[in-house]
Amino acid sequence: MNLKLKIWRQKDAKDAGRMVDYNISDVSPDMSFLEMLDVLNEDLNNKGEDPVAFDHDCREGICGMCSLHINGEPHGPDRGITTCQLHMRKFKDGDTIYIEPFRAKAFPVIKDLVVNRSAFDRIQQAGGFISVNTSGNTQDANAIPIQKHNADLAFDAATCIGCGACVASCKNASAMLFVSAKVSQFALLPQGRIEATERVLNMVKKMDEEGFGNCTNTGACEVECPKGISLENIARMNREYLFASLK
């Protein structure tokens, strides 16, 4: 099939940037979206133009490196997938596809479609851990039984891949789903309860400092999250934070 692409091009962080039109032909419906961009880049490269920069790595939906805002939605129109798992059969011959970087003050553009998501790392550094050293003498893994239900919920929260689609889809560029996933994971486990108060206060403080917006419960994040992280995690964080603040 033949497609018209409108891609955000921005030379570097200082450049103003603009949308540029490209035509691409002979796209196979079996291609992944990123493979389609590979073909475009090969073509641009052969013509002596600068290829489009975009982040990607594992290309199987787990590393969280790929991003892209495609036709108005992070990771494109399909559900429960990342951009690397989006296939061209989701589009029709003659379609126009808009491709933009994830937009947020906290995610500044590095080049073209590549953004800097280090703010996520810094939030994790503020408290997204359990303070246990590696000694080889921690107690036996089965010493504390954990309710299967809670272990499963903790797992579901822990499957967040840190891609930033929640921020990109949120009209307020809020990072609540991301932060709450980590807060929830640990809040649900006995190991994590010990530092629960400090963790939620510190992580939220950092989240605010990084310039993410406030949650207005629109639920866009949950819909667009490639891993289906639930809004219940945000509610859990709201609870955790409320109790932590009252302590």
């Binding site: 359990i130 590696t134 272990a151």
Partner: peptide, 25 residues
């Protein structure tokens, strides 16, 4: 030899490994 320590360490870190209904791994 150290393989067993890895599981202890990861559980202490809050890695949500699969559990049975009895709460054990």
């Amino acid at each position: 030899e150290v393989s067993a320590n890895i599981i202890d360490q990861c559980v202490a870190q809050g890695v949500p490994l699969a559990r049975e209904y009895g709460g054990l791994l």
